[in-house]
Computed example of a mutant assay.
Amino acid sequence: MSEYVHKSHNVSVLLYHLVCPAKYRRVVFTPEVDGCLKEVCLEIAKRYEIQFVEIGTDKDHVHFLVQSVPMYSPTQIARVIKSITAREIFKRVPSVKKQLWGGEFWTKGYFVNTVGQKGNEKTIATYVRNQGREKEYQQLHREGSVKRTVYPLFQ
């Protein structure tokens, strides 16, 4: 879960729901790529002040629930995550390059949304965690706690 980040002149809790589709919406998130992605994200968390609260993959896109500090804009966070993960996945799982012939892993666009700490963080975290799990999605959808959102930008 998120925590208050204490700096010398501020205290913050900034949470972002970031959705990044693979280039050409190709189905590239195999268990191997998924594991590699999560390892790389742990390395990013060590180097930058970006904490990954949840990561959920769903065949052709990834949902990240990230927490950061005010000095990083959502655009900078997306740029750091997308550039480092793309480079490392291509390096560690070379077979992905054959599926993505243009030399890019991610699409140019992304979706980002702020998440309230108390109001809907738990709901978004559950949604991100259960990406690609149809049974859990149906159960959550029936209970009314998560509404599946279709992002027109990525269709």
Score class of each variant (00 low, 15 high):
Lys38Leu: 05
Leu37Cys: 07
Pro70Ser: 03
Gly109Thr: 10
Phe90Asn: 06
Pro152Val: 03
Arg25Thr: 14
Val150Met: 07
Ile81Thr: 04
Gln51Asp: 13
Lys122Glu: 07
Arg129Tyr: 05
Arg47Pro: 09
Arg133Trp: 14
His9Leu: 02
Tyr137Asn: 10
Gly132Tyr: 04
Gly144Trp: 00
Leu37Trp: 07
Ile55Ala: 00
Arg148Ala: 09
Ser83Trp: 06
Ser145Arg: 10
Lys59Gly: 13
Tyr137Pro: 07
Val96Gly: 05
Lys59Pro: 12
Val13His: 08
Arg26Phe: 15
Arg25Ile: 13
Gly102Tyr: 07
Glu43Thr: 08
Gln76Glu: 12
Arg142Ala: 14
Tyr4Cys: 15
Val69Tyr: 00
Val69Thr: 06
Glu32Thr: 14
Arg142Asn: 10
Gln117Glu: 08
Arg26Gly: 14
Phe29Arg: 04
Gln155Ile: 15
Thr126Ile: 07
Val80Gly: 02
Gly119Ile: 09
Phe64Asp: 00
Lys59Ser: 13
Glu143Cys: 05
Pro94Gly: 14
Arg87Trp: 08
Asp60Val: 04
Gln51Val: 15
Thr75Pro: 08
Phe154Met: 12
Arg142Ile: 09
Leu18Pro: 03
Lys82Ala: 05
Pro74Asp: 00
Val19Thr: 15
Arg142Val: 10
Ser68Trp: 03
Arg133His: 12
Glu49Thr: 12
Lys97Arg: 15
Leu15Cys: 11
Tyr16Cys: 06
Arg92Lys: 15
Lys135Asn: 13
Gln67Arg: 01
Gly116Asp: 04
Val62Cys: 05
Gly102Trp: 07
Lys108Glu: 11
Val5Tyr: 03
Gly102Ile: 06
Val115His: 01
Tyr151His: 12
Asp60Ser: 08
Glu43Asn: 13
Ala86Phe: 02
His61Ala: 01
Lys147Asp: 12
Gly109Phe: 08
Phe52Asp: 00
Cys41Lys: 04
Gln99Leu: 14
Gln139Ser: 11
Lys135Pro: 09
Ser83Asp: 08
Leu42Asp: 15
Met71Tyr: 13
Val146Gln: 00
Phe105His: 05
Arg87Pro: 10
Pro31Leu: 08
Glu104Asp: 11
Glu134Met: 11
Phe105Ile: 04
Asp60Gly: 04
Gln67Ser: 05
Tyr24Asn: 14
Gly35Leu: 13
Val13Gln: 11
Ser12Asp: 00
Ala86Glu: 03
Pro152Glu: 06
Gly132Ala: 09
